[in-house]
């Protein structure tokens, strides 16, 4: 049932990504001081925004799970956070490339948004060992939801603290360049944001579909008294 609508969604995603990439390469103007490498901005920033929104979505699903006790919401929460962590890896890699190209170092500590993102990423990376360490599936689901809510509250606090710590050293130049984005750049950026968001939704849906299929297969095997095909994942919740 999760598979419904997956095909049109995938097609829309492919079209959106193709469109966004053509805009990035053929429409958006070259940045005056950074040149071609600045174009990584169109992939880096949307990835970061979508990943952060994904963490918040995971926290919202977690609240729904705690309120209703319905394990399906835990699966949604898990998949949202899981996908955002994967996007987070991409954010850190693209951020490192951008830093190397424009400042000459793979990592810079005086870009507060990137530093904040690293801390948030480290926080959510502990979600996996956390789930893995709790054996009872029901308890695991409940604790994972509490984790998701707690980490959700942590994200804005962390951004605030890091920003305050940085502005102590020097004023942010970057915010002003971002704020005064020319129209064509802004349009390209928004197109990329939509494409990346669609990609996130499609991948989340895909993973839920796959989990649902393997869950059904498992139930069928059990009904037929056939041995299960290998041990399933202990941390990923089952979806009915």
């Amino acid at each position: 049932m999760y598979g419904k609508g997956l095909r049109p969604l995938s097609i829309a995603t492919v079209v959106a990504i193709a469109g966004a990439f053509s805009l990035v390469f053929f429409y958006a103007p070259l940045d005056a001081d950074q040149g071609f490498v600045q174009k990584i901005f169109y992939i880096h920033v949307p990835l970061a925004i979508v990943a952060l929104v994904g963490f918040v979505v995971g926290a919202v699903f977690a609240i729904l799970h705690l309120r209703s006790g319905d394990r399906r919401w835990d699966a949604y929460s898990y998949v949202s956070i899981h996908m955002s962590v994967i996007f987070g890896v991409a954010v850190l890699i693209t951020g490192a490339i951008w830093a190397k190209a424009s400042w000459g170092h793979w990592w810079v500590w005086d870009e507060p948004t990137l530093v904040s993102f690293l801390i948030v990423f480290l926080m959510y990376a502990t979600y996996y060992p956390f789930r893995y360490a709790i054996e009872d599936p029901e308890r695991q689901a409940r604790y994972a939801s509490v984790f998701a809510v707690t980490a959700g509250a942590f994200v804005p606090l962390n951004f605030m603290a890091v920003r305050l710590a940085e502005s102590l050293v020097h004023p942010r130049v970057f915010a002003t360049t971002n704020g005064g984005l020319p129209g064509s750049m802004m349009f390209t950026f928004l197109a990329c944001l939509v494409a990346v968001a669609l990609l996130w939704v499609t991948l989340v849906k895909l993973e839920l579909t796959a989990k649902s299929a393997s869950g059904q297969l498992k139930r069928l095997r059990r009904a037929l008294d056939a041995p299960a095909a290998g041990a399933g994942s202990r941390i990923a919740p089952e979806v009915s």
């Binding site: 801390i119 984790f147 603290a161 305050l164 710590a165």
Partner: peptide
């Protein structure tokens, strides 16, 4: 598990 999860969580506090 306690330290593993707690450390990133207290980063803003430590900042």
């Amino acid at each position: 598990l306690g330290p593993l999860v707690l450390l990133p969580l207290v980063v803003p506090l430590m900042i």
